[in-house]
Simulated scan of single mutants.
Amino acid sequence: MWTTSSLTNALTPTVVALGNFDGIHQGHQQVILPVLNDDPQIRSTVVSFSPHPKEFFTGQPRKLLTPRSEKAFQLSAIGVEQLVLLPFNRELAALTPQQFVEEILVNHLQARRVSVGQDFRFGCKRSGTATDLQAIAAKSEIAVTIVPLLTFQGERISSSAIREALQEGNLQGANRMLGRSYSLVGEVVQGQQVGRTIGFPTANLQLPPEKFIPKQGVYGVRVSGVGIDRKLGVMNIGNRPTVNGTKQTIEVHLLNWSGDLYGQMLTVELEQFIRPEQKFASLDDLKAQIKADCETARTMWLPVS
């Protein structure tokens, strides 16, 4: 998939889905679906923003469900051909709704069709609505599809709702809203190697700093990487209080597997929240609990897809 932050490098003409799309959850997918097409001459394109507008206006770093590389991967998996990440700056924020349509959609992207969610807002001070976009774009003969909001258990599916579920350890709810398992993608780096001294070697994951980390605790997971295809494992997110840890780590133990993973990129799909992190009286107690966690992971229902 072609990814660019420069409008001059965008492949045109396009059909465009507009939005922030952090998470590429089921609601986002409904917005993207109308721009997937079989015409090789027209690029199915997602137009998003970097940094997130809320980060730009507040000046506070924003943790993302899908950092740039993950967003590109998820979009490619559903058939999007191009990701255009508009640099969100003062110039872009100052554009009126009319200017946004004319400069971005018409002049640069040569958009033929646009899809947005019902709650989409754009232009200076978020003054433009989805229906405004529809009216303005019609003057340039660009059709705009407005997609109704998608709900889960009576509540709107949103990136914020997914973050809240992940913070609470409600992995089932988060994954239902996402339409897939929440995943962590990172490089295996050197750790303190405490796990191997008690018989449970772990891969210590280093994630992008902007990645949203769910509730601390132990998870049943599926792990993929070079030579590893969704292998069952147990992951701990936490400070490792039993060994006087002071820094949060993310460590994965693969069941019935051994090998050298240093330097590899792993994708860890979170399938089940097993328990919160806790401090044990001794390493023997910790070892017994990890053994029990592994048995829980082996016996619980973990979907293959």
Rank of each mutant, 00 (worst) to 15 (best):
D285H: 03
I274S: 01
M265L: 12
V252E: 06
A135E: 14
I142M: 03
M235I: 10
E210K: 02
N204L: 04
T197A: 00
G173M: 08
G217Y: 09
P209E: 12
V223S: 09
L270R: 00
E269V: 04
P67M: 03
E168C: 08
S6G: 06
R222V: 09
V116I: 12
F152P: 01
G195W: 01
R121Y: 07
K231T: 12
G233D: 10
K279D: 02
G186H: 01
L85H: 02
P40R: 09
V194S: 00
T197N: 03
P97L: 14
P303W: 08
F152C: 10
D38G: 04
V116W: 11
L261Q: 09
Q172C: 04
G217M: 09
N9I: 01
P148M: 11
A72Q: 13
A165K: 15
L178D: 00
R298M: 11
V268C: 11
D132S: 06
S50F: 12
Q60A: 13
E271K: 08
R298D: 01
V84K: 03
I237Q: 02
A297Q: 09
Q134V: 06
S140M: 01
Q192E: 13
Q41E: 12
I250A: 06
T197V: 01
P208T: 11
S160G: 04
R298T: 01
V223Y: 03
R113E: 08
P208R: 09
L184F: 11
H253L: 06
S6C: 14
S224V: 10
F273S: 06
Q264Y: 05
E141P: 00
Q134G: 03
S160D: 03
S127Y: 06
V101H: 04
V268I: 15
D132W: 10
A111P: 02
F88T: 07
S69R: 13
K247Y: 02
K54E: 14
A77Y: 01
N170R: 15
L254A: 02
Y262H: 14
A93Y: 11
R275D: 05
R62D: 00
A203F: 08
N236Y: 04
T242C: 09
F280H: 12
V147I: 15
T66M: 04
A94G: 10
F57Q: 00
E91S: 13
G199H: 06
R156E: 12
M265E: 14
M235G: 07
V116E: 13
Q289W: 00
S181Y: 05
F100D: 00
G117L: 07
C124R: 15
N170T: 05
A10M: 01
S305L: 10
N170I: 09
E103A: 13
F152D: 12
L232E: 02
E102A: 14
N107P: 00
M177Y: 06
N107K: 15
T151S: 13
A93P: 14
D22Y: 01
E187W: 01
P67G: 02
T66Q: 05
F21V: 03
N89P: 04
F200K: 04
L207K: 01
P13E: 04
Q278K: 14
G199V: 10
M300P: 00
V188Q: 04
V116T: 11
E277L: 05
L11V: 14
R275G: 06
Q60W: 05
K211Q: 14
G173F: 07
L36R: 11
